[in-house]
């Protein structure tokens, strides 16, 4: 049987989550941002698995399956939007998305 301290496991999940967050904040390429979000979702799922194994319940795994379904739906809509964006702006740079402003406060 494995004897890994639960703290280490959570630390691992948290590190993954933070890596995803860093990626999201640093990258401007929308595809990379979507990938970072996937990393974050995955790490959140990991927490549920850890918790499920801590309590010996199936609920954590069930939740993971739902997360998987949601992630799939989100990615499909997200990628469709990215396609549209690419056709409109001819770029994947998120910083190009800056047309929505108050006319007066343009800067």
């Amino acid at each position: 049987m494995v004897t890994i301290p639960i703290e280490i496991q959570i630390l691992f999940a948290a590190s993954l989550f933070l890596l995803g967050l860093i990626g999201l904040l640093v990258r401007r390429n929308i595809i990379f941002m979507l990938m970072s979000i996937e990393v974050m979702f995955n790490s959140a799922g990991l927490v549920f698995i850890i918790a499920g194994s801590r309590w010996g319940q199936t609920d954590g795994q069930v939740m993971f399956i739902f997360i998987l379904a949601v992630a799939a739906a989100e990615v499909s809509v997200g990628l469709a939007l990215i396609l549209q964006m690419f056709h409109h702006y001819k770029t994947l740079d998120a910083d190009e998305l800056s047309k929505l402003r108050d006319s007066k406060n343009d800067s």
Binding site: I10, M40, F41, S43, A44, G45, V47, F48, M63
Partner: peptide, 13 residues
Amino acid sequence: SAFLLFGMGLIYL
């Protein structure tokens, strides 16, 4: 949503 999930995971834990 990712934050929400992670938070829920921690509470579940």
